[in-house]
Design a binder for these strands. Structure first.
Lengths: 351, 351
DNA sequence: CCGTAGGCTGAATGCGCTTTCAGCAACGAC
DNA sequence: GTCGTTGCTGAAAGCGCATTCAGCCTACGG
């Protein structure tokens, strides 16, 4: 039982292989009667065109790729239930958005988490099979990027920008600016503390700069650095909240977190301490994960258009596929400040 | 700027293309000095082996495929927030599990939602590019399945079994049986009502049979059909709950739903009606979605090992890849009854 | 009835790689 | 010194398809 090829179908249908090929690639160029003969033969033999052969001959695979960081083995593994489902949702949503957009464009999607200890080798596996590659955050090294980037279109998603590469990211700065402004102007908060992510997270840093900008704008003292940092998990948020409460200085009247997970962790810690949110202290997050709506009080946050990130990735790849020498494009996707209970706004209100 | 090939690398390194190929496929067969020369040349040229050419020559792509039903445009689109995130989570988790397992085995994963109006064409796109294909639920037609199944390993996930095909599913029957038994034996409930899914959902029907079996076992009257059905959404659950409350017969003392979404909808409806859960009426779901733990009262349910489903899919595909003529294998994955508040159990307890 | 344009089809080539198979050098054992 | 051996490397033959080019046939105008 060998898998049938064009030759088999051609023989069965009494035509040449060129005609079989045309039936699939350019049906209109074949007379209807001939076409039916071929299709009947194909059905009978169980013929499916080989993607590899097609790819070789036509110099295009019809597949787009996505590399994303592999969280699973690190954080999610020991996170209790709900958390893990939420945590990985980010890449899931990007995958979903990208899959949809790719399909609309007639491309399939090849995905691969970048496991640190085999990144290079594995990258080639993916890169060699696709017409264009999207790379989420820092899921591959500078060197690998160069090798692949010279060969095919690559778009970077979130994280750091790289000269010469297309890039899509969300408006971290603007979102945090607007949210912080809301806290300062609308709620009259004056002693905000910022709990950031790792210093090497470009997204987290951009959010902090938005936080700074809001202070500048309001004429408040400029915070030089985040008041504390954490690894973006709920556990880190819990820890950060307690640390900020117990500082010697005056207690802050608002805790601004670099992401939702940390903010949710903080809510738990504050509840355990009996500190009322938002009455005594306001809390905000960033990301707009589903969990943010389910916690009590509901979490004020900045919603990212995660699925859109994937769709834009496809858009940029396709554009470059059509025109290899176009200028690198940076796309910043708008975010949405979602005012909920944890900042002192009553119900849900999306601005 | 054409993408470099083995020929370019071979020339640059002063060796033959066979040697270049060996450096990538079988490094030990090449002297270290030669290997280094080749790798240096490759790096300099930005060479990445073409997956298509490799696939053609070696008769294997090193890629596994997953087709899953495309929900997005139908339900999730108009579902409010949390729901959509939860809804699609099912396929997301399968994708994630499959991706992990595939990567461990050295395979990449090609995914494609099966959009109804182009199923056939699109299927071939995927099938032609992979060494093995996993198909989630009814995401492709009988006819397509036959064509593809003759060509390459195919494993069916959930849904209906097909003679001759490997299949992986969760223990719908056993899970519902055990859960229902718990309601009858441990909580002494006697008038349970079952709200099923669409009659053509094999999973839903299997769950109902488990529900029936528990009645048989306890010597209670055998329910012939589900008391009502819905489309597995929260809205349907709301509707079903009200319908079951307002029937002429005696009010049931427990509502058993075919999935969590419907059960959650029911909880909302009951709360609105002022019917106490679980005091007046117990409620249970099936699936173990994250949301089930977040609602109040927390939902008693049966947890599916969704990610495991994807991992098992890979396992079955690999096994068949190694031995094409092995007997079709049906793998039933164990589920976990999770007793929470909505059935009358106090805190969380997983049995 | 001939010439020609247009619509279909087939022969042939090559896409970039893997994989025998043969060749060749160095090296012992005899 | 000869004859395997062992260890690498190169030549060459496809893998299954897309595509070009030429050829055929039909239909049509003259």
């Amino acid at each position: 039982m060998t898998t049938p090829t064009v030759y088999d179908v051609a023989e069965q249908a009494g035509v040449s292989i060129a005609t079989v090929s045309r039936v699939y690639r350019n049906p209109d160029a074949v007379r209807a009667a001939t076409r039916d003969k071929v299709l009947a033969a194909a059905r009978e033999l169980g013929y499916v065109p080989s993607g590899s052969a097609r790819g070789l001959a036509s110099r295009a695979t019809g597949v787009l790729g996505l590399c994303f960081p592999d969280f699973h083995d690190t954080e999610a593994e020991h996170a209790p239930g709900a958390e893990d489902a939420e945590l990985v949702l980010y890449s899931d949503q990007v995958i979903r958005g990208m899959e949809r957009a790719a399909r609309r464009q007639g491309y399939a999607l090849l995905i691969s988490a970048a496991h640190a200890d085999q990144a290079g080798r594995q990258l080639a596996e993916v890169a060699g099979r696709v017409d264009g590659l999207a790379v989420l955050a820092q899921s591959l090294t500078e060197e690998d990027l160069d090798v692949v980037g010279r060969r095919q279109p690559v778009v970077l998603l979130a994280g750091e920008r790289h000269a010469g590469y297309d890039h899509a990211e969300v408006a971290n700065f603007d979102g945090q600016l607007e949210l912080t402004r809301h806290l300062i102007v609308d709620h009259g908060l004056r002693r905000l503390a910022f709990a950031g992510g790792p210093a090497d997270s470009p997204d987290g840093e951009a959010r902090f700069r938005g936080f700074q900008a809001a202070h500048l704008e309001a004429g408040l003292p400029l915070p030089k650095t985040p008041d504390t940092r954490g690894d973006l998990t709920q556990a880190a948020g819990r820890k950060a909240a307690l640390e900020l409460l117990d500082r010697d200085e005056a207690m802050p009247d608002g805790l601004v977190f670099a992401n939702d997970q940390m903010a949710v962790g903080a809510l738990h810690a504050l509840e355990a301490r009996g500190v009322a949110v938002p009455d005594v202290i306001a809390v905000t997050g960033f990301d707009g994960i589903p969990l943010s709506r389910l916690v009590r009080p509901t979490l004020t946050t900045v919603r990212q258009p995660t699925g859109l990130l994937g769709e834009v990735a496809v858009e940029l790849l396709i554009a470059r596929l059509h025109q290899r020498d176009r200028a690198a494009e940076v796309r910043v996707l708008p975010v949405t400040v979602t005012r909920r209970a944890s900042c002192g706004c009553a119900g849900e209100r999306t601005v």
